[in-house]
Amino acid sequence: MRKLRYGKGFNFILWLEFLGPIAAVLLLSLNYGAKLGLLVLAWISLWGINVWLSKRPPSRLISFLVPMIFGLTLLMLWEGLVDVFNVSPILLPPPSAIAEIFTQGSKLAILWVDFVQTVVKGALSGYIIGCGSAFLMAVAVDRSPFLQRGLLPVGNFVAALPIVGMAPIMVMWFGFDWHSKAAVVVIMVFFPMLVNTVQGLQSSDHMQRDLMRTYGASYPQALMKLRLPAAMPFVFNGLKICTTLALIGAIVAEFFGSPIRGMGFRISTEVGRLALDMVWAEITVAALAGSAFYGGVALLEKAVTFWHPSQRG
């Protein structure tokens, strides 16, 4: 705290918010004409609406509206910039071209087949097996503090390793179909899940455990009534981290060999054919699947750990 400042000072964020875009409009309209000027004007006014909205008293509607407007602004800018600068669709297709894919029946069918192959068969089955076995293992070593002390650092270490690299080995062992993808997902989600569950099982505090002892609760009773429920916030943290890992694992494993369906396969072949609108459509599906997967786990968390302070907020 050596440097003290007196007076209101220079509000740098305010300057960035207003002067930057205005300067950009002036410069760009000089160069590219009215279309771009309009685009940037729309951008500024939408941002202005967001600034105004965020200063209203907070409510559910506003915290939904603001990010939506921001997302729409980004889409509009993307569409507009591609149009104004005549970007080749081979480099970056506009959002409208990507949306069109979803209206074509044949392409929609391909997207669905890929979705089933990668998300349902590969990612989801691997996720359930991996998280399930990690959870069971954590409960199994729960009675041995010796093993826990050994497993926690090792698990933390392994969780930081680039496990995706195991993908070629798994493809070699389990063949090209979804089994190998599920196997990659299993090893990717196993350690983060294990570490979180082990930590969670240790999270009940002394008083609570003493209370269980006063009640004369047996080990299984204490586990079911106290330690497992207390571990749930950690378990769900692990489950949420694993949703993203599962999708990444399933898609990347397809780069090392797959049958002629699957999102990873489609992305790498369509990139080769320069059909970028199809690639973006696959990415959209992946993003929607990823968000839905995460959202589903988050909803489940809300239902199970309704008692936790972070959920009552």
Partner: peptide
Amino acid sequence: QTIPILAVAPM
């Protein structure tokens, strides 16, 4: 982060 970015890598 829920978008599996690694899938976008080749593109």
